[in-house]
Amino acid sequence: MNVLAIDTSNQVLGVAASKAGVIQAEQIINIKRNHSIGLMPAIEHVLKESNMEVNQLDRIAVAKGPGSYTGVRIGLATAKTMAWSLDIPIVAVSSLELLAHNTREKELAISPFFDARRGLVYTGLYQLQSDGMHVLQPDQNIDMKQWLEQLKEEQRPVLFLSQDLAIHEDSIHHVLGELAMAAPSIDHLPRPGILALLGGQSEETEVHALTPNYIRLVEAEANWLKEQKQHGSN
């Protein structure tokens, strides 16, 4: 199975191709750039280096967020139209789950996260078991201090994976102390190659129905819903 993987959901621009469960080529740009400019040339490059024609693709895997709204949409707009027009399945993977796969530590609680400004993060709680990755807590948008307090109650070691670790390092150690585990720095970078491999195994999604996982409502919509509720209760 030939899989093309696309991740533009956060700072990393990641594109990879895999063949029969083996990564053929992987391109990672970990500099804040414009994904809209870089994505398609990266796809062209990775396929060329993999000796793969676009019509030989069997699947497209895409990171569906959470992350940058615009970034996620660039990835999804590209992946959806390619999959639809080539008439091949599309597989969408949580951007946080993808990051969680960077560690091979079994039976350990893993908290991958992306900074979401103003003290907030996108995170979830994962655990790798012999039969694959398990979701202990779904992806969410939460105040980091609140998240850490929740984790502390469970009194178990947690491994944090994030390129934004430095922003939250102090509060992590302050709240969790010895329970907080640090992964080697290489493990904090989301890998499109892993996305390609996951794409080969995971269940496909209906292409028209595939939407980004923003987690957050649009602010205007959230305010509107709040107003409706207030009117309703009066």
């Binding site: 809209s36 398609m40 062209e44 709204y69 949409r73 590209t78 139209t81 027009s85 080539l86």
Partner: peptide, 19 residues
Amino acid sequence: LVGALLVGVNAAKGLAFAH
């Protein structure tokens, strides 16, 4: 609107490249 334009532009690029 930049976010709106980006969806069309990237969809168009996906089609152009794939075919």
